[in-house]
Design a protein around this nucleic acid. Structure first.
Length: 670
DNA sequence: CAAGTAATTGTTTTT
DNA sequence: CAATTACTTG
């Protein structure tokens, strides 16, 4: 029955893996060994064997990965439309769908999803009530408080232990912090608010229920999980809850590419799974279809982890060794990259097939300017997305109160957009509106200062209309009517922002279910390139700039790695712990293995002390500790040319030089 | 209590 | 340097 497209181009190891039966399967797949292809082919094969697509669940790490895989599966199986009916998405996105289906069982009337900024807002509102304010002692920031809670939840480790290990200086406030976190959990429940962690917790809880869990389990026969080295304890529990004895379970992972430890993930789960399922098989994929052997030699030297996969290149044509570029500073690095990118383009490598990777989003600041000057279009992954900008969030907040009036955080946000309504007033008014705008309108308006009342009344009337409306288009129109004037008066550069707000309203009006639309945008925000970029059109070629995290699973012909210096990669933030450093090493490995033909590693000798400023003092740096002598021996080292073709020589400083008087037009200031 | 001004701090990574 | 925070004033 092997008449499907799925087996085209698979080698023996891959084909065996794809054809493996229902016993639990753990695939240890090194970078570039075709794990996406194997997973996709496995799905295609199942569908072809007559498995109903609805009975297959494919859990991926990003929405992009989910879309790419279902698209490929569709292309490979006889019935392309079937692949579209496979359940696929991130743990969080699928959790959201499941929770939305089971609001009744969960005791939720309506609910909204809080993103990390919303979590900070809510904790900010609440911390004063738990004595976590004042200037007598240094207190943990709200972000730290959120981190402590989230880490505890995601790893199943009590907060006290989390603090002892990660934030020892917060321990003296442990009682207050725990009380705050308990109150935060209670408040979320009361208001139908779910943060990212809650989405997973609620899914896990549904699976643990004897009746609901049994039904959920019976829904899927086949569960495939990608990037299993990056799952945390709750996600493990979900997977085990879905397939208790592992039948029909396939997971793929690589311990050397575990880069989400900061989110509570641990590659140990990959080994635990294999050990705890007696019927499981572990296969290793080590034949690399992506990179040249020269690149893999370097990657193998840099590879950390227990699995000790040694990657062998399948390709016979080498393109030379990876290059190590020593340069003067960040500007020099930017110039070097821009020139190399253009040179490669001239040789026929489109910009789209080239990428620049970095540890943090700010590392490309100088490069972005250089690219703009040279008119090279680019798209940046991992920066602040359009959906995360303040004005867009304002409109999303309006949608949220229209669909869940109890969403206090969204009310708070909308209220503080009004002139003369600050934190304190918003905190007083928000609870009044939680039962619905229509009834509370007059009381709420009366509670605002005089000069804010007219504006507030207009907003609330519009939102009351939204609350009453049935059709999505009407709800959206009313919300838009409420928010647009607020954006106009609240932001100095409102004209630019209004365009986004209008566009989002248009998109929202076309949705069948507004609440789901908003939640999905929150869970998986589409990121749009920085304003700096020359606007890339769909058919236009553009360069990819990406954090290493966002580059996971992707590959390009040419890859540039920026700032291979201690302090940048490894990040100085990570140097406090052994585990932190190990994760940086894995990031380095992930970066190296993205390249197919050419890999360039850049090492500036001096870097600005402050990442976001261009004129900051520069300090000397050391090359990254990951560039071991053994690694460097596998690379071609180059030094940036001394001649700077740009800046012309400065004018001579001699006393005979003519004096030029400049009229600074002071008379205009009289 | 909000808005304006002065002083001070420092930013990983993402669902 | 710029973004957040601390302090003043209306």
């Amino acid at each position: 029955m092997n008449d499907g497209e799925w087996q085209v181009g698979l080698d023996d190891a891959q084909r065996t893996t794809v054809e493996h039966g229902a016993d639990p399967l753990v695939i240890a797949a090194g970078a570039g060994t075709g794990k996406t292809r194997v997973l996709t082919a496995r799905v295609a094969r199942l569908l072809e064997a007559g498995v109903a697509p609805e009975r297959v669940l494919l859990l991926t790490f990003t929405r992009r990965a989910a879309a790419a895989m279902t698209e490929r599966a569709a292309a490979q199986c006889g019935d392309p439309s079937a692949a579209g009916r496979v359940w696929s998405g991130t743990f969080h996105a699928v959790a959201h769908r499941i929770v939305a289906e089971h609001t009744h069982h969960l005791g939720l009337e309506e609910f909204s999803v809080l993103d990390s900024d919303d979590v900070i807002d809510l904790l900010d509102l609440m911390r004063a009530g738990h004595g976590l304010v004042g200037t007598e002692h240094r207190l943990p920031t709200t972000m730290t408080l959120a981190d402590i809670g989230s880490r505890a939840v995601n790893t199943g480790v009590p907060t006290r232990e989390v603090m002892a290990e990660q934030f020892p200086w917060a321990l003296e406030h442990a009682d207050a912090i725990n009380a705050l976190l308990r109150a935060y959990a209670a408040r979320k429940r009361e208001r139908g608010l779910l943060d990212f962690d809650d989405l997973l917790l609620y899914w896990r809880a549904l699976l643990a229920d004897p009746e609901v869990g049994a039904r959920l389990r019976a829904r899927w026969d086949w569960v495939l999980v990608d990037e299993y080295q990056d799952v945390n304890q709750i996600q493990v529990d979900i997977v085990r809850g879905l397939r208790p004895d592992g039948t029909g379970l396939t997971v793929v992972g690589d311990d050397a590419q575990a880069i989400y430890g900061f989110r509570g993930a641990s590659a140990g789960h990959l080994f635990d799974l294999a050990r705890s399922l007696p019927t499981s098989t572990m296969v290793r994929l080590e034949r690399n279809f992506r990179s040249t052997q020269e690149i893999l030699d370097l990657a193998n030297v840099a590879r950390p982890g227990e699995l000790e996969l040694r990657l062998r290149a399948d390709r016979d044509v080498g393109r030379g060794r990876p290059q190590l570029h020593h340069c003067e500073n960040a500007d020099d690095e930017a110039r070097g990259v821009a020139e190399a990118v253009l040179a490669a383009q001239t040789e026929g490598v489109p910009l789209r097939e080239q990428a620049v990777l970095m540890r943090t989003g700010t590392h490309s600041a100088q490069l972005e300017i250089e690219l703009r000057v040279r008119d090279i279009p680019f798209v940046k992954y991992g920066g602040i997305g359009y959906l995360e900008t303040a004005h867009v969030r304002d409109l999303l907040a309006a949608f949220r109160v229209a669909t869940n009036p109890a969403d206090e955080v969204a009310w708070y946000r909308l209220l503080t957009r009004h002139r003369s309504i600050g934190k304190a007033t918003a905190r007083a008014i928000a609870p009044m509106l939680a039962g619905g705008v229509t009834d509370a309108l007059d009381t709420a308006v009366a509670a605002a200062p005089n000069n804010a009342r007219t504006r507030l009344e207009a907003t609330l009337r519009a939102l009351a209309d939204a609350e009453q409306a049935d059709r999505v288009t009407d709800v959206v129109e009313a919300c838009h009517g409420a928010v647009q004037p607020l954006v106009r008066q609240h932001y100095a550069d409102w004209s630019r922002r209004v365009v986004d707000v209008d566009r989002l309203a248009e998109a929202a009006a076309r949705q069948p279910d507004l609440r789901s639309f908003v939640a999905e945008q929150t869970i998986d925000p589409a990121s749009v390139s920085a304003d700096w970029a020359k606007k890339p059109y769909l058919d236009e070629d553009y360069l990819i700039l990406s954090t290493i995290h966002s580059a996971k699973g992707l590959e390009w012909d040419v890859v540039h790695l920026l700032r291979a210096c201690d302090g940048a990669l490894p990040s100085d933030m990570a140097l406090t712990s052994e585990a932190g450093l190990a994760e940086e090493q894995r990031l380095f490995y992930v970066a190296l293995t993205r390249a197919r033909d050419h890999l360039h590693v850049h090492v500036p000798a001096r870097l600005p002390t402050h990442p976001t400023s261009f004129n900051a003092r520069h300090v000397l740096t050391k090359p990254s500790r990951f560039l071991s002598p053994e690694a460097v021996a596998l690379m071609t080292t180059r030094y940036a040319a001394d001649a700077r073709s740009s800046g012309a020589a400065p004018a001579p400083r001699s006393s005979s030089a003519p004096r030029v008087t400049v009229d600074t037009m002071d008379h205009l200031f009289a």
